[in-house]
Simulated assay, not measured.
Amino acid sequence: MPVVTFLQLNTIFLSMIMEAIPFILLGVIISGLIQTFLSERLIARILPRNRYLASLIGCGVGLFFPACECGIVPITRRLIRKGVPLHAGIAFMLTGPIINPIVLFATYIAFGNDWNMVLIRGGMAIVVAYFTAIVISYLYPKLPLRGMEGAGAEIAAGAESLAGERVRMPMRSRLYDVMLHAIDEFFSVGKYLVLGAFIAASMQTFIPTSTLLHIGSTPIAASLVMIGLAFIMSLCSEADAFIASSFRSTFSIGSLSAFLVFGPMIDIKNTLMLLAVFRGKFVLVLIALVAACTLASSLLVGRLMG
Rank of each mutant, 00 (worst) to 15 (best):
C59S: 12
E69R: 03
G254A: 08
A197Y: 03
I34Y: 08
I120P: 06
L299D: 09
M233K: 13
S237E: 14
F92T: 03
G123K: 07
F64H: 06
D184E: 15
A67I: 14
S249E: 15
M203S: 03
G62Y: 13
L162H: 00
S210W: 00
L86F: 09
L275V: 06
Y130C: 09
M226Y: 00
L193C: 12
Y140R: 07
I80M: 15
F13M: 12
M16A: 07
A296R: 04
K281L: 10
Y52V: 05
R41S: 13
L119C: 07
G216Y: 00
F131E: 11
A159G: 14
A221G: 08
L86Q: 06
A106L: 07
I220F: 10
A197D: 14
K269R: 07
R303A: 14
T211F: 04
I98N: 14
A239F: 12
M305H: 04
A67K: 00
G164D: 05
S297K: 06
M273S: 14
S210F: 04
P219K: 01
S245C: 05
G71L: 04
S223Q: 00
P219E: 08
Q8W: 01
S297A: 15
G122Y: 10
C68H: 11
G280F: 07
L284D: 02
P101A: 02
I126Q: 11
C236K: 01
A201H: 06
T95Y: 15
M18E: 06
L299A: 09
V178S: 07
A182E: 04
G228E: 03
Q35H: 14
I90E: 12
L289C: 08
M148C: 10
F259A: 05
